[in-house]
Amino acid sequence: MTSNLMLHIKLNGELTELGKEQTVSEFVNEQDFNGRFVIVINDELMPKSRWQDVVIHDGDRIDIVSPISGG
């Protein structure tokens, strides 16, 4: 018997469903993000070097943020 449980996350403040557990890297590859961006998961900046190892869990809050320069 297989489980059809969906993961529920908040992506940029909006409730979103994922069909399966996946790493941040897999998630980014499936999305249509353009340009430069950083990822914040549950208020923690996620360095690109960790994308392959960090798994997205049910209830996670993910923010995709475009860096801006200024002073």
Rank of each mutant, 00 (worst) to 15 (best):
G19R: 05
P67C: 03
K48S: 12
F27P: 01
D53Y: 06
I62V: 15
D32L: 14
L5E: 15
P47S: 06
L11D: 00
S49T: 10
L5R: 14
V38S: 12
N29P: 02
L45G: 06
H8E: 13
T23W: 02
I62T: 07
V28P: 04
V28A: 07
M6V: 12
N29H: 11
R50A: 08
K20W: 04
L5A: 15
T16D: 02
S66T: 15
G59R: 02
H57D: 13
N34I: 15
M6P: 11
E30A: 06
Q52K: 13
S25Q: 11
S49F: 04
K20Q: 09
E21D: 12
N42W: 08
R36Q: 14
V38Y: 08
E30T: 07
M6R: 14
I56K: 01
V40H: 07
I62C: 05
E44M: 09
N4W: 11
I41P: 05
H57K: 14
D63E: 15
R36G: 11
F33H: 13
R50C: 03
L7Y: 01
G59M: 02
S49C: 03
F37T: 09
T16H: 02
V40M: 11
S3H: 12
H8W: 04
S49P: 03
P47V: 04
D58M: 02
D53R: 04
D53S: 09
N34E: 15
D58K: 02
D43T: 11
V24T: 06
I41V: 13
F37L: 09
D60G: 00
G59E: 04
N29C: 08
I68Q: 11
M46Y: 02
L7F: 02
T2Y: 13
V40G: 04
F33Q: 13
S25P: 03
L45P: 03
P47T: 05
D43M: 08
V54A: 07
M46F: 03
K20E: 10
V54P: 00
G19D: 06
T23F: 04
E14R: 08
E14W: 03
G70T: 07
I41S: 08
K10I: 04
G19M: 05
V28H: 08
K10F: 07
R36C: 12
S66Y: 10
Q52E: 15
N34K: 15
